[in-house]
Design a binder for these strands. Structure first.
Lengths: 142, 142
DNA sequence: TCTTCCTTGAAAGTTACTTTCAATATAGTT
DNA sequence: AACTATATTGAAAGTAACTTTCAAGGAAGA
């Protein structure tokens, strides 16, 4: 699995004319081993155990790169720092009450908060349903 | 309505031995007139139209005060700045798939993100439904 | 091997708060 | 109304967490 992720990253690098480097290899593989949110500093610490010369900025830029190619999501909780996590996938729905059109949406931040809420209630999530009802852009104007 | 909010604020001030000032009056009443999120700088601009001598810090501190007494909520979107909004009320549900127990929850941050998502799709929200299904703390252990 | 363009790490810069501090303004008391 | 203790204000300095700059070094195709 971590292999697939690394392959995806390498494909993206090649496609964009970017280069594979030892630093990116180390940072990405370390990140992929983490199965929950991780901050830049925290990831930097882990990475330094493998390659002490790697600096904050490179970790930072590599995470942006992973985000760019869809392998990571960036989260903002209220504590002032960004956390990154392995990308998953999910969809919820927005339904137009006039024309019935259904639009899929997904928002990782909502998913994360939902998990946080459930955790506060010691509730173990199996599934969820999140639907927004209203008027789509077209139906608002007629 | 804005009166009730002002009264609530004044009650809180008295209760805590804090003082009523012209600045707090202006900032709070301006804030209460806003029915959507507002940033510190944005509120500062409005407030300066009424009382030009009021500074950023006072707006900042007054918003923290409003947050403290439950009259405002602070939001953190990914764009690096905090937005504040008039406190409202809302509930969603968490449903246990084993015992059927229903727990109400509310999370302003989820509500705000939902609005943001809808806005991105030019969708006008009328209502929504957000349900989390899973195992409650009791049912997880048996 | 050559050459071009990408990367890196350190340092400087930015953004958006957050705290400090001396001057000023409340509000209870006289 | 005047007095006094304590809270509040605004400007400026301080922080935290990025974000950008820049010169040196490193990939990768020719």
């Amino acid at each position: 699995m971590a292999l697939n992720l690394m392959e995806t990253l390498k494909g993206y690098l090649k496609e964009k004319g970017l280069k594979q480097t030892r630093q990116r290899e180390v940072i990405a593989s370390t990140f992929f081993k983490t199965d929950k949110h991780i901050g830049i500093e925290e990831l930097l610490e882990k990475v330094k155990n493998i390659e002490p010369s790697i600096g904050y900025v490179t970790v930072y830029r590599t995470l942006l790169l992973l985000k760019e190619c869809g392998l990571a999501h960036q989260r903002n909780f209220g504590d002032g720092q960004s956390l990154f996590e392995n990308a998953g996938e999910h969809h919820d729905h927005m339904i137009c009450i006039k024309c019935g059109k259904i639009v899929e949406f997904e928002d990782d931040r909502i998913e994360a908060l939902q998990e946080e809420v459930a955790k506060n209630y010691h509730f173990k999530i199996v599934s969820h349903r999140h639907e927004i009802y209203g008027a789509c852009s077209f139906c608002q104007t007629e």
